[in-house]
Design a protein around this nucleic acid. Structure first.
Lengths: 202, 202
DNA sequence: ATATATCTATATCGTTCGTTATAAATCCCA
DNA sequence: TGGGATTTATAACGAACGATATAGATATAT
């Protein structure tokens, strides 16, 4: 908005970078599990700087959710939209879900929204609306991809795009959940061919 | 186990009742959200009594999980197993999931395992194994119900019982999640006919 | 009745939490 | 070269947390 140089000492950190770092902390530890010390250390700033820039912990959390939604960091959905062949796209979506749900990285398994934010729905004020909006948005994107195939004639005109989009979303929720509970990627992969057929059935 | 009268002052509370009360507190507030004060008040006992009987907070939490699994309190699964007609059973399962996921009661929405325990997987030591075992057990029960129908000849011999059981489970996870995010029961019900057909397809 | 063992309640412990005064440091502008 | 504005770091705040030491209460056993 305001590109004019502001008076006073400038920020010693990048707000974007700090937010992305905060996302990873919440992602790995959850809202309650992430202490202010965890956050300030990972963000490379001190407590007062954090409060001045983002408000309190809850406000920071909500901003990480908004940021995550903005940068469109959800790999499975991106994969789904990028692949031209619809069957491969569905398979790619599920495969991406599974790999991200089971990859033993820095603790940021699954999707930030599905793995972390979803666990604070109904617990942290302000999360519910954002989560609902995120689910709506995802449902819509998935459905639109199917609608595209209906226009192309690949899928029949009466294909229930919305329902199948939601189905895919719920499958993701299940896979992420199982991954967090310790399921291996291989065992989860046993299901995907059956599921691809379900999603695309008539 | 030991029915002989024990020496010393007897317990002033029932351990079962106290555990059930603790379940509801965790269910409504989550593991971190449930304070010892919340727990002792709901359980009707004082702090030291709680610690003497159940250990620390985490041990109590794990015991509530075990207890919940034992009493078989998961309504959707019970409904699924009770209904003789398999299609009605599947529909009943999903309907029960949705109603319990959206019923605005005392905060104990969904299933204790799906709504609360699942959010502490990877966060609280000892939860992972229990959750994995619970999922395994549920998958098995759902699959066995399908196997029964295969024996009866209602479902074809090549019906993938295990896969469809897992599918139902993942659908539940999705519905519970959406319910927590604010979805209404009616909007969730829009999906179920399509889903019943999916689960029983081929 | 006394001794012993167990449970209960009050009160408090030390931590850790999220949050914030305070003051030094760093920049723009005049 | 100051003066004003803003950000920084240190330190500490009150509150709430989970967990306990202590002492009183209540049962059985002898």
């Amino acid at each position: 908005m305001n590109d004019t140089k502001r008076i006073g000492r400038p920020r010693g950190f990048d707000e974007n970078d700090a937010l992305m770092a905060a996302i990873n902390v919440f992602w790995a530890k959850g809202y309650d599990g992430a202490s202010m010390k965890d956050l300030t250390r990972a963000m490379g700033i001190s407590g007062p700087s954090l409060y001045a820039a983002f408000g309190d912990k809850r406000a920071l959390y909500l901003k990480t959710i908004d940021r995550y939604a903005d940068v469109d960091a959800c790999a499975p959905i991106v994969a789904f939209e990028a692949e031209p062949d619809i069957e491969k796209a569905v398979r790619g979506f599920l495969t991406s879900v599974i790999s991200s749900a089971t990859d033993p990285g820095d603790g940021t398994r699954g999707c930030f929204l599905a793995s972390c934010v979803s666990t604070s729905v109904g617990q942290v004020e302000g999360v519910d609306e954002r989560m609902e909006k995120a689910i709506d948005g995802t449902d819509l994107r998935l459905a639109q991809r199917f609608d595209l195939e209906k226009q192309r004639g690949v899928l029949p005109a009466d294909f229930p795009s919305r329902l199948r989009g939601r189905l895919m979303y719920d499958m993701r929720q299940g896979f992420v959940f199982r991954g967090r509970a310790g399921w291996s990627g291989e065992s989860l992969m046993e299901d995907i061919e059956d599921r691809v057929q379900m999603i695309l059935a008539i």
